[in-house]
Design a protein around this nucleic acid. Structure first.
Lengths: 233, 233
DNA sequence: CTATGTGAAGAACTTCACAGCT
DNA sequence: AGCTGTGAAGTTCTTCACATAG
C-alpha cells in the first residue's frame, strides 16, 4: 500500500520547515496577470485591497502570499507595480525565457504554436515535432515540423530546452514523455487524457479537458454545492 | 473591501452543514478515469489500495471521498467496478449527455471539435460558431460553422444546451460569455487568458495555458519546493 | 481475515487582528 | 492616517485507527 507510517516519528511538520502552499503559487500567477495588465495601462501602484477587487482573492491572503517571499510593499502605501511585477517574475522563474518544444502538430499543437501568450510570457518555442510522415517538413508558422525520431538527438544537442509540451494522442504520450525524460527535460505539460509515469524530479502537469467538463457537470448537477474560488485552475 | 465579518456571529461552520471539498470532486474524476480503464480491460473489482496505486491518491482519502456520497464498497472485498463507475457518473452528473456548443473555430476550437474524449465521456457537441465571415458555412468534421450572430437565437431555440466552450481570443471572450449567460447557459469553460465576469449561478472554469507553464516554471526554478499531488489540475 | 466506512486527531491553509513602518 | 506584514485563531482538508461487515 502507500507510504506507511512505520516508526511514527517523522511527522510531515518535522520534514518540512516552511512550505509554501501550491495554491499560493497558483495565486501568484493571478497577481502577475493583474500587475501586467495595470502596468501596461501605466498605473504605478496597487494595494492588497485593490488586488483583491481584481482577483477576488481576499486581501489578507494576497499579503500573506506575497510575504512568503519577502516584503515587497510599502506600509501605508501599497505595492509598486513595476517592482512587484519583477519580484513575481523572479519568484516564478520567468526572468529568462524557458526554451520549450512542442510534440504533436495536430490541431492542438498548431493552436499552441500560434498562441501568442507563450512568447509574451517568456516561453520560447524552439521546435515542433510530429510522428506523422506526411506532416514532417511542413511548416507551422515559422517552424518546420521535425520527426519525433529526431527529438532525442535534438534535445541532446540543445540541452537548454527545459520544457516539453505533449500534444499527441493518449496512445503515444508515454513514449514521448520517456524520450523527454531521458533527455533530461525539467518540466512536462501534457494534454493527453492519460496519467503519465514521470519521475519525481521532473515537474509534470496534466491538462485533461474532459476533467474540466466533468467538474463543471458536477456543479451544474449539484447547484447547492459550494464552489470555492479555487475552481479556476 | 471583501466580505467583512460584521456581527461576529455566523461562523462558516454554522452556514454550511456538510460540505464536499472541491478537491474531492477533482479526485472523483480521477477515480472515474481508472474505473473506466479497468472496466474496458474486463476487470471487475478494485480495492481502495489498488485505486491508490493507480492514482497516487492515499487509500484513506479514496474511501473518505467516496463515503461522502454513499457506501459503494463491500467490506472485506472492495468496490465492484461497473457499479462504482455508475455511481461516479451519477455523482458527476454524467448519466445523460451534456449538450455543448463551441464558440471559436480557430485551431483550438477545431482541436476541441475533433477531440474524441468529449463524445466518449458524454459531452455532445451540437454546434460550432465563429465571428470570422470567411469561416462561416465552412465545415469542421460534421459541423457547419455558424455565425456568432446566430448564437443567441440558436441557444434560445435549443434550450437544452447546458455548456458553452469559449475558444476565441481574449478580446472577444467577455462578449461571448455575455451571450451565453443571457441565454441561460449553465456552465462555461473558457480558454481565453482573461478573467471573465460571470454571475454566481453560472458554473465557470478557466483554462489558462500560460498559468500552467508558469507554475511549472516555479517548480523547475525551486526544485526543493514541495509539490503536492494536487498539481495535476 | 480482509477491506470498507468514519469519528477523532492532525496538518495545512485561510482569516483575523493588530503591531509596525512610512 | 493608512496599508503592509505576521503571529495567532479559526476553518477546512487529510490522515489515522479502529469498529464494522462480509
Amino acid at each position: 500500500m502507500e507510504r506507511k507510517a512505520v516508526s511514527r516519528i517523522p511527522r510531515k511538520k518535522d520534514i518540512a520547515p516552511k512550505q509554501i502552499p501550491y495554491s499560493t503559487i497558483v495565486r501568484l500567477t493571478q497577481y502577475l496577470r493583474v500587475v501586467e495588465k495595470l502596468n501596461d495601462l501605466g498605473i504605478s501602484g496597487i494595494s492588497s485591497a485593490e488586488l483583491c477587487e481584481e482577483t477576488r482573492i481576499n486581501s489578507f491572503l494576497v499579503r500573506k502570499d506575497l510575504s512568503y517571499f519577502g516584503e515587497f510593499g510599502t506600509r501605508g502605501v501599497g505595492y509598486d507595480i513595476p517592482s512587484l511585477r519583477l519580484e513575481l517574475e523572479k519568484i516564478l522563474g520567468l526572468t529568462e525565457a524557458h526554451r520549450t518544444v512542442i510534440v504533436g502538430a495536430g490541431n492542438l499543437g498548431t493552436a499552441l504554436v500560434h498562441y501568442d501568450g507563450f512568447k509574451e510570457k517568456g516561453f520560447k518555442i524552439v521546435a515542433v515535432f510530429d510522428s506523422d510522415p506526411s506532416k514532417i517538413d511542413k511548416k507551422i508558422g515559422d517552424f518546420v515540423i521535425e520527426s519525433v525520431f529526431m527529438l532525442e538527438e535534438y534535445l541532446n544537442t540543445n540541452k537548454d530546452v527545459t520544457i516539453g509540451i505533449i500534444a499527441v494522442p493518449a496512445s503515444g504520450a508515454q513514449f514521448i514523455a520517456n524520450l523527454l525524460i531521458a533527455s533530461g527535460i525539467k518540466g512536462i505539460l501534457c494534454f493527453a487524457p492519460i496519467q503519465l509515469m514521470v519521475p519525481d524530479d521532473v515537474v509534470y502537469s496534466a491538462v485533461d479537458l474532459t476533467t474540466y467538463l466533468e467538474i463543471i457537470s458536477y456543479y451544474i448537477t449539484n447547484p447547492d454545492a459550494r464552489r470555492t474560488g479555487d475552481m479556476h485552475y
